[in-house]
Amino acid sequence: MGGKLFFWLVICFPSSIALLATTFYQVLILSDLEADYINPFDAASRINYFILPEYIGQGALCVLCLFTGHWFMFLLSLPVTCYHIMRYVKREHLIDVTEVFRGLNAERKFRLAKLVMYLILLIVVIFWILAAGSSIFYHNSKFEELDIRLNTLGY
């Protein structure tokens, strides 16, 4: 049980918060760019700085979920991972300063969609944390092996 809590609280929770934050930051920069509060050079370099870490982090989380057998989490993050892989393979993952305005709207929409995905992920993670925590503190150990759905029903 402790391992579960560790997994959710120490690995998934911070990473999904981080993903959410970077994406939010990118959306913010893109909005600033459109409103002309920032020049395209700075905007591109700031956004590009975060892109690879984000891709790696997201990919790692996805793989971790797969190997630890958290199927639901894995399936939830799979679309985003696929999207990232596709962008990376096409070499379109970085913002292109010279054409940034041409794809501005599309870029922002994709990021907003990602933001929503990450938000869902975070909510799910928080739920698991609560579930895992509650199973430790409020329930007897005999419930431990039960399926999580039982736990939730217990609430």
């Binding site: 760019l33 002309d36 395209p40 010279t98 940034v100 305005f101 041409r102 501005l104």
Partner: peptide, 14 residues
Amino acid sequence: TTYHGNFMLRSTDL
């Protein structure tokens, strides 16, 4: 909305 030629866009319309 769109510009075509040899230049770089400095902001949406510059």
